[in-house]
Nucleic acid binder design. Structure first.
Lengths: 191, 191
DNA sequence: TGACCCATGTAAGCCGTTACATGATTGG
DNA sequence: CCAATCATGTAACGGCTTACATGGGTCA
């Protein structure tokens, strides 16, 4: 069983989900395509870690709602205390940033502007997820307690929001340097 | 030519390096093992994007110092303005954090403590890199200008430092919640 | 009317990791 | 004395991406 399999069990330990939902919701933690997830779910079912009920829908395709079994929970618990691998990051924009001095000033601004737009979207999504989580738990004021199954999701959304904000601050900082040093070539900055 | 190939060219556009150094220095931007990098360098050489000089050393293995060619620079410049792919993140600890409510309190603290230690190391390394960069550019006070080939490295180190600090703050925050809510079970927190 | 969302699955191929291979020097 | 660092390479395998496949409903 690979790491992604444990990740799927982790999501299912909070609540049942379809393969499609798992595919969407695991993205911020572990990027994976549906073509990888569906076969893994089949394997997890054969191992007795998950089970599913088929749901027939009108006007939408049928779906399988997966939930975790006792076997799956046991596997999860024995995986938790193991040493976690170092995070893997691969970021093409950072490679481009490394040789940013090769780019023309407006190209450079464009690259940073694109990243800013990307993380503005991310930030909006994470904020929506936080609102959704507060609805789901009914705790509009405080935070889900350590024993709540939503505790993990809560601390991860907070982390993601802070991360996106930092990314945006970095973009602003770089943009300022680009603007400052290019006072001579009087192009309007991009909107 | 895949993204990693362009990454290698990006590093070489600043200064020549050995395959070994490239392997080490590209890690924060794009995780890759030497077994992937050496064959790519051979391919880039066949394509005429890089060239190398063999250096025989006493008391150390021989090495190849690679540098970028005009062809390689042209390839880099045409790659720069292309839309960059979204960053890829795969973080096993976040999967564990998602189901942290399943863990025993001391297990949970241990997981977070390990991550804190990891990023304290990262932070120290990035700070050392910043000092090294200031030595290399001779600019102990200000920052390398937009036209300096070290500009990209500079903004990336600053970004990495801020990222590591944020990660550490998140760890502290989570630790506090774990400590607070476990007042009843009077275990000593880990050192 | 063309793109996007829901929803699941398979197959081919590239990307990335692990393991095999070698070997001298330095530091704990 | 064992581990780590420097330094380069190959081979096998598993993980991940891209493409193929299907098909109704919604929105601009």
């Amino acid at each position: 069983m690979n790491t992604l399999s444990y990740g799927l069990l982790a999501l299912l330990s909070v609540k049942p989900r379809t393969g499609y939902e798992l595919m969407q919701q695991i993205q911020p933690l572990w990027r994976a395509k549906h073509s990888q997830i569906y076969p893994l779910l089949a394997k997890l079912e054969q191992l007795g870690c998950v089970r599913f009920v088929q749901v027939t829908q009108k006007e939408k395709p049928d779906k399988k709602i997966y939930s975790i079994t006792e076997t799956g929970l046991a596997k999860l618990r024995s995986w938790l205390p193991e040493q976690a691998d170092e995070p893997v990051k691969r970021d093409e924009l950072l490679l481009k940033a490394y040789c940013l001095s090769l780019a023309e000033p407006r190209q450079a601004r464009h690259l940073i502007a694109e990243r800013r737009a990307l993380f503005q979207n991310h930030l909006a999504k994470y904020n929506a997820q936080l609102a959704e989580l507060k609805r789901e738990t009914g705790l509009s004021d405080g935070e889900p307690g350590l024993r709540s199954p939503y505790f993990g999701n809560y601390i991860l959304i907070k982390r993601a929001i802070a991360g996106a904000q930092l990314e945006l601050e970095w973009c602003s900082w770089v943009m300022h340097i680009l603007d400052e040093e290019q006072g001579q070539c009087a192009e309007r900055p991009e909107p």
